[in-house]
Structure formats: structure tokens, C-alpha cells
Design a protein around this nucleic acid. Sequence first.
DNA 1: CGAATGACAGATATTGAAATCTGTCATCGG
DNA 2: CCGATGACAGATTTCAATATCTGTCATTCG
Lengths: 196, 196
Amino acid sequence: MAATETLTAERILEATEEVLRRYGPAKATVVDVARVLGVSHGSVYRHFRTKAALREAVTERWLERTIVALRPYAEGREPADERLTGWLTALFALKRRKAGGDPELMATFQVLIGENSAVVDRHEDHLVEQIARILADGRDEGLFAAPERDATATARAVFDATDRFHNPAHAADWSAPDIEVAFTAVVSLVQRALRA
Amino acid sequence: MAATETLTAERILEATEEVLRRYGPAKATVVDVARVLGVSHGSVYRHFRTKAALREAVTERWLERTIVALRPYAEGREPADERLTGWLTALFALKRRKAGGDPELMATFQVLIGENSAVVDRHEDHLVEQIARILADGRDEGLFAAPERDATATARAVFDATDRFHNPAHAADWSAPDIEVAFTAVVSLVQRALRA
DNA sequence: CGAATGACAGATATTGAAATCTGTCATCGG
DNA sequence: CCGATGACAGATTTCAATATCTGTCATTCG
């Protein structure tokens, strides 16, 4: 293949993603990754100590994309209530599109998530921080009531309350006919709870 | 064993539950059930058309117990907001005790739930109806605002918002140290949303 | 006569031998 | 000198032969 290019962690991660896509989490091997790159599997171990570390890095990269996609809502200048609904809707749409568009890839992703709970915990903290930022802005704008405790705790509650609409564990439910209705109902419940 | 007693659907269900407990969902067979009862497996098929129907019946029985345990809250005479918190807390405690006390049994239960989504859907409808009843009482008492749509839709939103604290898919999270805090935060979010 | 049995066919699960994979490391080549 | 290689040991997975299970039904038993 492109044996001329130097072997970087980045290129290995891309190849790993491709192998995971093609063979799924059960059959994707380090040897497969090396084959895609046209190198020996020993070379892969120069950049990643174990297969688990490699898969963890892929998981991290994958989750990072969600953070980036949601940043516009977290950092926007619109009224906080609109940004919150926008953020929640965007997150749901993102996950749902991924789950609906390629169920196998979603299943793969779910396996990786299950393997890397520490990475997922950090990712959730990032998401909750984005919500907390919207809540803090909302309080400053007088749209949201001042939280009883800190904004992060309330943000976590909002994240937990909408769990059914972003946690991949529920992906199977997202093709139900009335899922949109259920989502809208929970979002307006949350909005009512926050309103000043 | 007690070959003198007549073979009833009830006795078969008890035996099936025991076999599921002992061997788990993967290894529990109709032959095992028959062995526990001291009959031939053909006799079991006189009462249940298939193994799937037998497992479905066990699942239904299992879920029914939750409905019964929560009825006092659904039908109590205390103020509706207290009843709602009580109901949600009782449901969480029930599931959590089951998950924490016997993780293997919980895993078995989860497999059965996955196999019988129709039964689970009906069960959820019952639970939502219990919440709806509390909400309707709360509206009559002037504690809760009149719902924008019907009480059942709002009840479903409350059920969905607390999903993380009763859906067995999240059982693994329930031993986290701050799960109580997270639960309390979501419940007070919900209460704030409902308040008149 | 109606409930229970057990032999049976096809489907599913188990098992253990063979193949593949993971992770290491002495060696190679630019 | 430094990244890449490939042989290797132990762990894991695959595969096909074997055993068990599901669901039916003709027959038995009380």
C-alpha cells in the first residue's frame, strides 16, 4: 500500500477504524490492522502497547467527534433555552442517524463503549460541562432559575433525564414510531423544570 | 418428587423460575424443568405450547410483582408529590436491591426482558398508568399544574426521564457511589417541572 | 377417556483438536 | 542508531464431530 508514508499513530487509528467497520469488534485483529497498513503487526505494537489501548484510542476519537459537533450549541449566542433544546435535539439526531444509518457500526461502537467505561465517563463529563455552560448562560439571561446546587449537578440531572435519547443502550428503541413525541415530551418537561 | 400433586401451569412456572435461577437463561432447558417436577418433558408441552411461551409467562409473573409492590403508592391518600417521590424511590430501590443482591439473577431477568419486548411494553404501560393516576390526583389537589396534553403523556415523560433509575439496562451503574445523588437530582428536576 | 409417556426428526449446543491471534524480543537493514 | 521485522510461547478462536434439546405424536396407563 502506501508503504512510503511513515507509520504514525494517526494512520494506525484510521486503519483500525476501517477494520472495525469491515469485520466488527469480534473479528477485528491487530494482524488485520497491520495488513491494511502493509506492515508487520509488531510495528503496530510500537505505537500502542496493547490491542485494548488501540481500541480505547479509537473509542476516544469517535466520542470526540460528538463533542465537536455539539460545540456550536454549547457556545452559541442564542437564548439559552433554545440552545438547550437545540443541543439535546442535535445529540439525539446525531446518535439516531448513526444508529439508523448503520446498525452494525452502532453495534460495534456499543461494544467499544462497553470495553472503555473510563473513556465514556470522561466523555460524559465533557457533555455535562457543555450543558452546564448553557444553564449558566440561561441563569445570567434570567431565563432559567438559579440552580439549588451548582450548575454542573443540574446539568448532570438534565443529561440523566434525557438518557433514553442519547445512550446507545437504547438505540433499539429509537426506531419506534412515537419516539419523537416521547423525546419532545421529556425536553419540555426539562424546560419547565428549569424555567425561572 | 411430589408426583402425587397434579401438574398445573402454576407449578411449572415455579419450577421454571427455579431452573432459570440455578442454571441461567442460556442453560435452562425444558428437560430440566420436567426433571425438577419429576415428569417427562412432553407433559410440560401440554401446558405451554413452546419454550418461548413458558419463558414469556415467567417474565410476565416476574414483572407483575413490581406492579403489586408499587400499588400502595399509586393508590395512596398522601399528597401527590410525596406519592410520586415515594413511587419513584420505591421502584428504584426495588430494582436496585434485586440487581445488587443477586447480579446473576438480574442478568437472567435482563435476558428474559430482551426476549419478550411485547410483555415489557405492556408492563411499562401499567407503570405509566400508575404515574398518571398520581399526576391526576396531584392536579385535583392543586399541587401539580394541569398537563399540556393528557396526564398519560406527561406520565410517560416522567417515566422516560427516570429511565436510568429503573431500566435494568443500567443496572451496572447502580452501584456507583453517587447514584443516589443523581437519582435525587432527577427526581427534584421532575418535581419542579410538575409543580403548579 | 384424558393425562402422561418416550421415541423420534430436525435444530441447537458442546467439545476438543487445529488454527489463529496477542504480545515479546533478538535480529535485521537503511 | 532506530524503526521495522518475523519467529515464538501462551492465550484465544474456529470448526466439525458428537451430544443434547425442542416440539410432535402414536402409544400407554390409570
